[in-house]
């Protein structure tokens, strides 16, 4: 059960060693930097040291209580990330698959709109626009 924020890449296989030992189901989700505009080279992520780590851990604990998780892990990167690079991961472990899937989905929906990160698109000319929050992400929270 852990959450962390880091600049460097993470090794999914290494992170999953000893994760959720004894659980019947483990789900992992990895978010990848993609280009929605056709002219983006990288993303730059700003965060709020202290608050961000605390919020990630808080949502992890909420997911654990709600879905009866045996284990959970959240890793979110900050700084400059190139197209195609992994930006974050969540892993959930539960006795049965449905709880593990739902907990991962729940975590992703909440982290999208409540984790203190701010993305900026970097184009060929340098720093570009801040990414605006989407209404659809806010709407997704109503499912929970």
């Amino acid at each position: 059960m852990s959450a962390r924020v880091q600049a460097g890449p993470f090794d999914l296989a290494a992170e999953m060693e000893n994760f959720g030992r004894g659980a019947g189901a483990v789900v992992t989700f990895t978010g990848i930097v993609r280009d929605d505009t056709g002219r983006m080279l990288a993303l730059e992520l700003e965060y709020y040291p202290g608050m961000t780590e605390r919020v990630l851990a808080e949502y992890g604990a909420r997911a654990a209580a709600r879905f009866g998780l045996a284990d959970w892990k959240i890793i979110h990167r900050h700084g400059r990330l190139n197209l195609g690079e992994p930006i974050m991961m969540v892993a959930t472990a539960a006795r049965h698959r449905r709880a593990a899937f739902e907990a991962a989905d729940y975590l992703m929906d909440w982290l999208k709109s409540r984790a203190p990160f701010w993305k900026r698109e970097i184009g060929p000319d340098g720093a570009g626009a801040w990414v605006a929050a989407k209404d659809s992400d806010e709407d997704a929270l109503k499912r929970w």
């Binding site: 709020y48 982290l111 709109s113 409540r114 984790a115 203190p116 990160f117 701010w118």
Partner: peptide
Amino acid sequence: VAFFPPMTGG
């Protein structure tokens, strides 16, 4: 106290 735009994590 902190001020920021709506978050865009994930």
